[in-house]
Write a protein that binds this DNA or RNA. Structure first.
Length: 774
RNA sequence: AGCCCCGUGGUGUAAUUGGCAACACGUCUGACUCUGGAUCAGAAGAGUCCUGGUUCGAGCCCAGGCGGGGCUACCA
């Protein structure tokens, strides 16, 4: 389960959204959906479908009239349906909210939280500052709400030219988050919107439109990719300040899908289309859903891949092999087998009758997959096999046909090559072979082992077809966005016109899947595949360990993968003293003082920065001066942890005297560290003094050796192999046994003793037993 | 440089309250007399970026460091 699904579950348990689960998929209709969107689609629609009453909205985020088109909307809807998702009645458009958005903007203006800025674009940019330099206020920043209202109303009325004014949120021009430096909410754009024509001369910006749209639709979980991380702050700010209804949607970011050898930037994909480097948005080499579909990739395969990839916050690159696996896995029992000879080489069977013919049958799906049907393969004196299945000088390990060697024509005969005929240039034009009649129809010839089996085609019945072999569009795993064209894979499309296929594919209809045996999965092109003139796109090759081995031998290394993508930098040995991390003089002063008072350096760093903890430390130390180091350690290690856990712990309730007493009790071994921790938790929750709390709590600890040993023996009997592994050197297993004891005693066992006993018992069961007897 | 996010086998993700580092892809081996590719069986491969701290016990808690990414559009 990924972190987002866990979060949704948690929200369901706590009733945060009254049991509602509403997600949304909000593409901007300015291009085609691609494989990266598929991940988001699977996530959003997936989560919605996993909960009763859950739903996922399709919302076109159409707030920029310059780039958006109705045709993109239609393409998106088609692609989403194709992928297998259904938004039901929940189709929305951000542009339909323009009126409400406008009113929300007015709310901000009236609250003095938004203003009309009449600066130029350059001025605004200049005044924004930089990541290291604070911005400066616009001279228009302090216009009165009335004036802002009037100006904004006139912006809407169309009185002003593009770029003359913008509406901005009034937040903080020195904000550490650049997004919060008075972000622009509205701009003037006299452009025709594909849905609303010239109704609006002003358009809301993403930050404003997005959160408001989510809120208007009562979305619960607004999921987006990592690059919007910094925008979360403005998302929350805006909803809060327009008094959006509770509970408000919350944005959560996840890592986008990044595939090796693939780019998923719409702005980078467009030049490929427009520059004629591919045949269109649906070119089979494109990562668009339309392209993948045309290539023959199935929706199920894409969904399966997204499933494999998972959802997390860590940036990652996914190996193409995962997609390829998903495709093969899905097509394996969907695509009937057929013979295809890409590069035909004539084979004359010299001992076969001149006019002889016969027909063999072969399964449509071998190995029990599929429908169990058969296909018929005519056979004759002349057949064609693939040129690559014959080698005059075979490399070691070659299992196909060689001069004087044998190979099995699959489902027909084993043949032996007796003669190689060449043309004037030395090119092999014909193989003269003999069939072994005893091997007819694939009947096992006893005592004979023929390793190679190849596909073949009988010419008179064969079907000609155009075959398009596709490979990755880019030659490097991580195409550089500045020089995409330079890394285009020149051989990404290879068109084969002279291929011969078995007769059965004559009836192929556009959109049919096949597996051409030993070659790969192919898809009858939905556009170009015509009656009697089939055109097939290679969806994906089959796994090929032979090719992989040859490639490895040829390059001496990994020929495909290229450079490691993410070199892990060795941590440089430069370790500076930790106090250099302290930022202010005040903190540094405290640091030295705390160290002098007896706190360790590591703890002092913490205390120097945290006034509340420090105050407790100082007070507790006066109660128990010798324990300064321990007190500091408890404060930093245990208290910080508890406070950070989000539970109902409050440092304010902890009396320094109580802490001092507690630490002293542990130091004096009046109680274990573990018991101390239990008391501390209670003190942080309820306050009070130490001794009283200690009396009240059930701090009983099982220290009785007999009892602990009994539990340990029980565990050793239950997990004899673990005990053996421990003795074999896997000492890490000690934690397994101690942990087991802790669990069985509900945390009551004295861990130190349990650990000690476990170590003794595990390494020498007999010794402990005899010691026990005595 | 500032702020934010993220570091777990080659790749992608898991790991309940701190208690056996798991799954998938990939790789390799073997079996299967008919795909060198299907299928089945098996194996190798990380001790969790580094250094320290807390703890009986740390992938998980604390500190520091290193590395990667995002943010300075009137795009989304």
């Amino acid at each position: 389960m990924d972190f987002i699904r866990s979060m949704v579950l948690r929200d369901l348990e706590t009733g945060k959204y009254d049991g509602r689960v509403v997600t949304r998929f909000p593409p901007e209709p300015n291009g085609f959906l691609h494989i990266g969107h598929a991940k988001s689609l699977c996530l959003n629609f997936g989560i919605a479908s996993e909960h009763p009453g859950g739903r996922c909205h399709l919302r076109l985020d159409d707030t920029n009239p310059d780039t958006e088109k109705a045709e993109f909307v239609e393409a998106m809807k088609r692609d989403i349906r194709w992928l297998g998702f259904d938004w039901g009645p929940h189709l929305y458009h951000a542009s339909d909210y323009f009126e409400q958005l406008y009113r929300y903007a007015l709310v901000l203006i009236d609250k003095g939280l938004a203003y009309v800025d009449s600066s130029t674009e350059d001025e605004i940019r200049e005044r924004r500052g930089s990541v290291t330099r604070p911005g400066v206020d616009s001279p228009w920043r302090n216009r009165a709400p009335g004036e802002n209202r009037d100006l904004f109303r006139r912006m809407r009325a169309g009185e002003f030219a593009d770029g003359s004014h913008v509406l901005r949120a009034k937040i903080d021009m020195a904000h550490r988050n650049m997004v919060m430096r008075d972000p622009i909410l509205y701009r003037i754009r006299h452009a025709s919107h594909y849905r609303h024509g010239d109704d609006w001369p002003i358009y809301p910006m993403y930050d404003f439109a997005h959160c408001m749209s989510d809120s208007l639709e009562r979305v619960t979980h607004s999921l987006c990719t990592l690059e919007f991380e910094n925008n979360r702050e403005i998302y929350d700010w805006l909803l809060e300040h327009v008094d959006a209804p509770q509970p408000r949607p919350e944005q959560t970011e996840f890592a986008p899908l990044v595939l090796d050898y693939v780019i998923t930037s719409k702005s980078k994909l467009r030049p490929l289309v427009e520059g004629g480097h591919v045949r269109g948005w649906d070119d089979p080499r494109m990562p668009t859903l339309a392209g993948l579909r045309r290539r023959g990739v199935t929706p199920a395969a894409i969904r399966a891949m997204c499933d494999m990839v998972g959802v997390a916050r860590a940036q990652s690159r996914v190996d193409m092999a995962k997609l390829e696996f998903a495709i093969r896995d899905d097509l394996n029992d969907k695509a009937p087998r057929a013979f295809c000879v890409l590069d035909p080489l004539k084979v004359v069977l010299t001992n076969y009758p001149e006019e002889g013919t016969e027909t063999f049958t072969a399964p449509r799906f071998p190995g029990g997959a599929g429908d169990g049907g058969v296909r018929e393969l005519p056979f004759g004196r002349v057949v064609f096999m693939d040129r690559s299945d014959f080698e005059e000088t075979p490399p070691p390990g070659f299992r196909r046909l060689t001069p004087g060697g044998e190979v099995r024509l699959k489902y027909a005969y084993v043949i032996r090559c007796n003669e190689v005929v060449k043309d004037g240039e030395g090119k092999v034009t014909e193989l003269r072979c003999t069939v072994d009649p005893s091997t007819r129809g694939g009947v096992a010839p006893r005592g004979r082992r023929v390793r190679g089996a190849v596909q073949w085609v009988e010419p008179k019945s064969a079907v000609r077809a155009e075959i398009r072999l596709y490979d990755r569009l880019f030659s490097v795993a991580e195409p550089p966005l500045e020089d995409l064209l330079g890394t285009l894979n020149r051989g990404s499309e290879q068109i084969v016109t002279g291929a011969l296929l078995e007769q059965g594919v004559a009836g192929t209809r556009p959109g049919d899947h096949y597996q051409f045996e030993r070659i790969g999965y192919f898809f009858a092109d939905p556009e170009d595949c015509g009656e009697g003139a089939p055109v097939f796109n290679r969806t994906v090759t089959l796994r090929d360990s032979w090719k992989a081995r040859k490639r490895g031998a040829a390059t001496g290394a990994d020929g495909v993968r290229g450079e490691p993508v993410r070199p892990r930098g060795p941590a440089s040995a430069q370790q500076r003293p930790p106090e250099e991390a302290l930022r202010t003089d005040g903190e540094r002063l405290w640091f030295t003082e705390l160290v002098e008072l007896g706190a360790s350096e590591a703890a002092s760093i913490n205390l120097a920065r945290a006034p509340e903890l420090r105050a407790v430390f100082l007070a507790a130390r006066t109660e128990y001066p010798d324990g300064a180091d321990s007190i500091a350690a408890w404060l930093v290690n245990e208290i910080t942890r508890l406070l950070g856990s989000g539970a109902a712990y409050d440092i304010g309730r902890l009396a320094p005297e109580a802490l001092a007493d507690l630490v002293e009790a542990v130091d004096e071994e009046e109680m274990s560290h573990r018991q101390g921790r239990t008391v501390l938790e209670a003190l942080l929750r309820e306050g009070g003094e130490f001794e009283g709390m200690r009396q009240r709590l059930d701090l009983e600890e099982i220290g009785d050796e007999e009892a602990l040993l009994a539990i340990l023996r029980g565990m050793m009997e239950t997990y004899p192999e673990k005990a053996a592994a421990y003795r074999g050197g896997q000492t890490g297993l000690l934690g397994f046994f101690v942990g087991g004891v802790m669990k069985r005693t509900k945390g009551k066992a004295d861990p130190r003793k349990a650990s000690e006993l476990a170590a003794r018992l595990l390494s020498d069961p007999e010794g402990v037993a005899t010691a026990q007897k005595r």
